[in-house]
Computed example of a mutant assay.
Amino acid sequence: MAKLHWKRIVVKVGSALIAPHKAGCSSHFLLGIAHFIANCRAQGCQVVLVSSGSVAAGWHRFPEVNNPNVATKKAMAAAGQADMMATWDKLFDFPSAQLLVTHGDLRDRERYISIKETIFSLLEHGLLPIINENDAVTTDKLKVGDNDNLSAMVAAAADADALIICSDVKGLYTKNPNLDPNAKLIRQVSAIDERIYQMAGGATSDVGTGGMRTKIEAAEKAISHGVETVIVDGFDPDSFHQLLKGQNPGTLFSPFEKPMQEHLHWMTHTSQAQGELIVENDFEGDFEGEHTQLTSDDVVEVKGNFSVGDTVLVRKGDGTKLAKAKSNYSSCLLNFITEQEDPDFASDVQQKTGPIISDKNIAILE
């Protein structure tokens, strides 16, 4: 790691750093992070901050509640978001801007592009974008669920050079360092495979929603877009001193040498399949060809309800996932076509309407 060679970074801060005891926001652990962000900006490096903590920050506003239900947690998020933004504002001598998103925003291509444009405009005008999931209004169907994965999606949208994920441990260990004294810190990961995931345990904090596994998931999303990713101990100010010196204080995940194209990365890691197209187990279609087509003759079953333009998963009957793709047909029309006994009917429809999926909107799944 050369000394601060990045031009644009995303920093992810979790709930345990924002409101460590659910007693309101605390700047105790945020000072070092704020100092790091200020130094990065002073050196010409643009910064986007992904900050969890709205629920934890608002928890103390509901002292009579021990086990909050979903509606109360949304109310806590609404109350805590304002406190969290106020806390960050106090730590900076430059302006910031709040951007609340849901997975529904990110998986819709038009809204995703809108988010990109907003981030770029804020950075261009010298503001610090502070992004969080809109916990006050999101539903299970529309939420990302953890800000580790959200930060990776933001890093891709922002075309960042690096993603810094703050944890409550130094990085990825061979075993849980809180339980095994022989656990060793892994300084660098060149490829993420099942062995790496097996090393990732659950959350060690009772405040946040993400554990080490979600951080590995986020790293996998980010590095496939060419974003260098570092997991560091956010509670240790020395982590940020080392980063400013170009040193690796935690676990560094090396980015792909050949990153995925932007629209394919979005379809693979951000867009959510709204339905499935099931093909025969012996299906041998070439999705990597220049003239990829999927016809109704190939599709044996249509699952889910989706509209034209929605992302669908193409898989074999045995469960093998082949690709994610943009559907040129609605599930209603596809079901109608596949139920017809006249083979010429489907052929006539597809001659007029085109292929079910097109070659420019396919992400191959391996």
Rank of each mutant, 00 (worst) to 15 (best):
L127K: 15
E341N: 10
K7E: 06
G317P: 09
R111W: 04
D105F: 05
F336H: 13
I119L: 05
A82I: 09
L17I: 02
D286N: 11
P259K: 06
D89W: 12
E64I: 05
D105G: 04
P343T: 10
M76Q: 10
V349D: 08
R315E: 08
L179W: 11
D161V: 03
N134K: 04
G234S: 03
A23S: 14
M153V: 11
V13Q: 01
H263K: 14
I337H: 01
N66G: 14
H241L: 11
M1D: 05
V48M: 04
N147A: 05
S52I: 11
H269L: 11
L334V: 12
V207Q: 05
D359C: 06
E194P: 02
A323T: 03
T214P: 06
A152C: 08
L4A: 13
E341F: 07
H291Q: 11
I131N: 10
M212S: 04
L31T: 11
I186S: 01
E284P: 00
P129T: 09
A82G: 01
R107Y: 07
G211N: 04
D105E: 14
S331Y: 04
L244T: 08
E117N: 07
D206R: 15
D140Q: 10
E257W: 06
C166N: 14
A346Y: 13
A203I: 10
D159Q: 14
D310M: 07
I278P: 00
M85I: 13
A136D: 06
K22N: 09
C40H: 01
L264E: 08
G246P: 15
H21T: 14
W6M: 14
Q43W: 06
I37H: 02
V50H: 01
F240G: 04
N149Y: 15
L4T: 13
I216W: 05
S254W: 11
T338Q: 12
F36H: 07
L142W: 04
V13W: 08
Y197H: 13
A57V: 08
L252E: 07
L264K: 08
R315K: 11
L264P: 00
A157E: 13
A325R: 00
I186Y: 09
D108N: 15
Q351T: 11
P249V: 08
G250R: 13
P20I: 09
K3P: 08
N281F: 15
V314I: 10
L333D: 11
F345T: 04
M1R: 06
D146L: 06
E301C: 01
T229N: 00
L127N: 12
K184L: 12
T139R: 01
S190A: 02
H60M: 03
R187F: 05
K7L: 07
D159A: 10
E217V: 11
N335K: 09
F240E: 06
S151R: 12
V101A: 09
D105Y: 05
K360H: 15
G171L: 15
K90I: 03
S96H: 01
A273M: 04
A157L: 13
K175M: 13
A218Y: 08
M76I: 08
V48S: 03
M212I: 02
Q350K: 00
K3Y: 14
N281K: 14
L49H: 06
I362G: 04
H263Y: 14
N134M: 02
N147V: 06
S327H: 07
V169G: 04
I192M: 04
L150E: 03
K324N: 03
K221C: 06
E64F: 03
L277S: 00
D282M: 07
D135H: 06
V299F: 08
A158Q: 10
A38S: 15
G208R: 09
